[in-house]
Design a protein around this nucleic acid. Structure first.
Lengths: 243, 243
DNA sequence: TCAATAAGGTTGTAAGACAACTTTCGTCCG
DNA sequence: CGGACGAAAGTTGTCTTACAACCTTATTGA
């Protein structure tokens, strides 16, 4: 009976139904109790029920059909792919995410080499130039992200772009920590090393050579992973500061 | 993207605000217009506004504070990578997702070849056998998923496993539709062709040959994409039946 | 100046009503 | 007996009004 206090009545309902679905009490495709039934069973107003249902629907656990009822979504058991910020606190996680990113980056380079438009090329070049001109950590990190986003856009596959954004955001904080301690000179050196990789990728994409693009992207990511592995062995831990 | 008319007023509101947040018009931490203001601006009732807000909150884009107002979530950009079921309704989307999957299947094969344990190998073999023995669509689709999941597990990278699960689930319905019309013989033929690819991947992983594993995985995915492209050209559309 | 207080704004919840739609079931006709 | 039709009930979508709980800000008073 120990009830975790819910911030709101709708919260409580959401948690209850969520649990029940997860436990298998309500299999996919089965019907929810009607809104009215819930108001009676739980003693809350229909406003609350509707809000709870809306939130379940937003998470993809429930679909409601006007005039018919609400149903447990067919693929309710599987949630969105999610990576919470505190998962990226440990350097091992960063390494795993980078590993995952490797596959995508390689394939994106391939596709970009096949499909890039002139506008895509121009955008990639802009990002290269911005990285080259960067003097502080923030702008160089931003330029790096822009470079990879431009490639993702050049693939013409929106999912690649979305996932690049998604992963990019996760990895930026750790990247920033990685660079933070370094002075201006070593940072510039770091930027130049990376941009050399980037230029190789760009050249292959511009030339329309998928295999070369794959190789260049793979090398780039491997180096990036190796850097983090060194960091790991040197015993430096990543701990996110608050804020 | 051609804007389809929103199924409900709340849908419309959600999309509008989502877009505005994404475009940067409402930076993290900034205040939303009050519920009352929205009702006046858009000419809808507060019920609709509350429902829209509830859904935005469920997605982590908005937090509302009683008595104070609603605010754009501080980590709004951290929201999950999400692929909603209706996005996979069109065959073009399936193709794009397959393209995305290609990159990381290749990389998974590489890593699996380097890191697989004996237990991993055994699990992959089991999936191969199950696919070989399958006679109906459901079991063959399940065996296929198990095969790729086993490889994902062999990489030792949990993110790969999670993402494989995630994508696999999205693609299964269309896969099922793809196979549905076929008779037992053509289905068996299909299974055998696929499993031959699988065996090549397995052989490379067992031999511990990353480059060969990459090649085999790439071939496998390319063929899969080609099959769907044929389907696309033949004009067959994928339309999800109501669940 | 500063703290207590009052006023107004905002979200959370309740309740009732109607519209739009779906499902079910009974009726009537062939 | 069977099937088409339609009425009726059930359900979600939306609107409206009302109040409670809470926060913010301005006012007031010492």
């Amino acid at each position: 009976m120990a009830k975790t206090k819910a911030a709101s009545l709708a919260d409580d309902l959401v948690h209850r139904f969520e649990e029940q679905i997860e436990k298998g009490g309500m299999p996919p495709g089965s019907r929810f109790p009607s809104e009215k039934a819930v108001t009676q069973d739980f003693g809350v107003s229909r406003t609350v029920v509707r809000e709870a249902f809306a939130r379940l629907a937003a998470r993809g656990l429930l679909v409601s059909r006007r005039g018919s009822g609400a149903y447990v979504a067919e693929d309710a058991r599987y949630r969105a792919f999610q990576v919470t910020p505190d998962e990226v606190a440990e350097i091992e996680d960063v390494l795993e995410l980078l590993e995952m990113r490797m596959g995508f980056e390689v394939e994106m380079a391939d596709l970009a080499a096949r499909r890039r438009s002139d506008a895509d090329l121009a955008e990639i070049r802009r990002a290269l130039a911005a990285m080259d001109a960067s003097t502080d950590v923030d702008t160089s990190v931003a330029a790096d992200a822009a470079f990879h986003a431009a490639i993702a856009r050049a693939t013409g596959n929106d999912y690649y772009l979305r996932f690049t954004d998604f992963l990019g955001v996760r990895l930026v904080p750790s990247r920033r920590l990685y660079l933070q301690g370094s002075d201006a000179r070593s940072h510039q050196h770091y930027s130049q090393v990376i941009n050399k990789d980037h230029e190789a990728i760009y050249a292959a994409i511009e030339a329309g050579d998928p295999a070369a693009a794959r190789r260049a992207a793979r090398r780039h990511m491997q180096k990036s992973i190796a850097r983090y592995q060194d960091l790991k062995q040197s015993g430096r831990l990543l701990r996110r500061p608050l804020g």
